[in-house]
Amino acid sequence: MIIEEIVTNINDLSPDERNKRHLEKVHLESADLMKRIQRVETDHGRDLGIRLKNPHDLEAGDVLYMDDQNIIMVEVKRDDLLIIRPRNMYEMGTIAHQLGNRHLPAQFEGEEMLVQYDYLVEELLVELDIPFIREDRKVKQAFRHIGHSHGS
């Protein structure tokens, strides 16, 4: 089966719509969410080809296929993350500036900044005395690097 577009997101379906169908999941690494073309396998052993027509990153819960009996959706595997919890705007500005200089992508959930684990960032957080924890957590979207150069 070739998937060319996202049907919907599981969170946009009513509980009745979800519960009346058999659910299969495609488990992806967060980095794979950015791939438009890939071959995957569901947790029930079904092979799928993903070839998205539109340039769109996959997200947790995206429904790749749905009929009257089945749903195949994206489930994101856990990432090794640093969960940064600045206490104030100064700490937030300091760590955001430092991470920006390293071109590290970050995500935000509530009051937390999430970055993929890096021992140098961990050392920096300890040095700057900015609160953080290291945790395996599922993210909803891919960590996307923003491409640019410092030249003119």
Rank of each mutant, 00 (worst) to 15 (best):
P55M: 06
I2H: 03
N54L: 15
N101F: 04
K53D: 13
E29V: 09
Q141F: 01
N70G: 11
E5V: 09
M89G: 01
I133H: 06
L114I: 03
E41V: 06
H145I: 10
R137E: 13
L48E: 11
E75Q: 14
I83K: 07
A31R: 15
N11G: 04
N70W: 06
Q116V: 13
P131T: 02
R39V: 13
M92D: 13
S14F: 01
I2W: 02
E75M: 09
H56F: 12
H150K: 04
D136C: 07
V115Q: 05
V74T: 10
T8D: 08
Q98F: 02
L13N: 03
P105C: 10
H56E: 15
Q69F: 10
D80A: 03
I133C: 04
E5F: 14
D68Y: 06
E5A: 14
N9L: 13
I50V: 14
V40K: 03
E41A: 02
V139C: 02
R46L: 07
I2Q: 09
A60E: 10
E111L: 15
N19H: 05
D16K: 15
I133D: 07
F108Q: 06
E75F: 11
R18I: 15
Q38N: 11
K20Y: 09
V26T: 11
P86M: 00
T8N: 06
S30C: 14
V40R: 07
N19D: 06
V126R: 02
E59P: 08
E17N: 04
Y117C: 04
V7D: 15
T94S: 00
I146K: 05
V7N: 12
L48C: 05
H103N: 15
A96M: 04
H148A: 13
H97R: 08
D68N: 12
L99A: 05
R137K: 10
D68A: 08
D12N: 14
G61L: 02
L64V: 15
G110L: 08
M89P: 00
N101P: 07
H22P: 01
I10M: 08
K20A: 07
Y90G: 13
L120T: 13
E59G: 14
E4P: 00
M34E: 12
D43Q: 08
S152W: 10
H103C: 14
L82T: 10
E41M: 09
V76Y: 04
A60G: 11
N11D: 07
S14Y: 00
L128S: 03
A106L: 12
E111I: 10
D79T: 05
G61C: 11
D12Y: 08
P105S: 11
D43G: 13
A142Q: 07
Y90D: 12
H22Q: 01
D129T: 06
G100C: 07
V26G: 05
H150M: 01
L81K: 04
E91H: 00
L124R: 07
E5G: 12
P15D: 11
H22R: 09
K25Q: 06
V115W: 04
E123H: 08
R134D: 01
H150W: 04
N70Q: 10
P15R: 05
E112Q: 00
R87V: 01
Y65V: 11
H22T: 03
P55F: 02
R144S: 05
H22W: 05
Q98M: 12
V40F: 04
E5S: 14
I37W: 00
H44P: 10
E109I: 15
H44E: 15
S149E: 15
R87W: 00
R102Q: 14
E111D: 15
K138Y: 11
D79A: 07
L114P: 03
H148Q: 13
S30H: 11
H145P: 02
I10C: 06
